[in-house]
Amino acid sequence: MIVRRLSPFNLVSIALGLTFLYLPIAILIVYSFNDSRLVSVWGGWSLRWYRALLEDSAMLEAAFVSLRVAMLSATLATVLGTLAALALVRAGRFRGRLAFSAMVYAPLVMPEVIIGLSLLLLFVAADFSRGFWTTALAHTTLTMCFVTVIVQSRLLDFDRSLEEAAMDLGCPPLRTFFTVTLPLIAPAIVSGWMLAFTLSLDDLVIASFTTGPGATTLPIRIYSEVRLGVKPEINAICTLMIATVALIVVVASLLSKRYSSTQERRAALGGPPM
């Protein structure tokens, strides 16, 4: 590793950038350990808001709903997103491929308000009772395209001769997919799942359109509490959420890094690629 000396200009811009991004979060985390009842007055270190949180059943229930929605929608999105990626990379130039890929990627660029509103109209028109299931479905729609992007990029640099080698050795095509292809793209699928999970966990806009009574997600709960004034408890729950999301992001990036470094090692040793 070459450590390059940074110029003063670079140092200042890094410091400013990091401050801009992370100072608010750092303040929030520090204040979640504040002993004072007033949000903006420092009263010494304490875990009292975390204890208070444990007794706040409404908040805990909202967190539980959010986790369930995120689990379900991330899993659905991963299955569908992986299938979409396989179709886009492997099915060749089928009729309507361009339209299909445009439709898969649309939620990536569509404003969330519009996705939320259109899903709301759909659920009303179809006479679905809104709640847990509609939110999970909406989040699946939102996050599927992210899984597709990740899995597709892995499939694109997947060495097809590995599958051919498996078939050459007597492995039928479907078994080849499960014994060779799937294990090798698994890191991408897992990081896709994790991304979908975090996106679902912190979504407020779409959830507020598509949820109903009895299925208040955590972001909605927090938002409605904050409107009545910021309670220190909110800082505590937000800190926990940040910790959860950060953990998942770190695991996902480690997974994909491990994958790409084995790929590189393979390329370095394996001579010319096909």
Partner: peptide, 18 residues
């Protein structure tokens, strides 16, 4: 199909299962 042929191939990049 390839998986039912009594021939085996060594690939240019070896295609070992990583």
């Amino acid at each position: 199909p390839p998986h039912r042929r009594a021939v085996n191939m060594m690939f240019q990049n070896y295609a070992l299962f990583p």
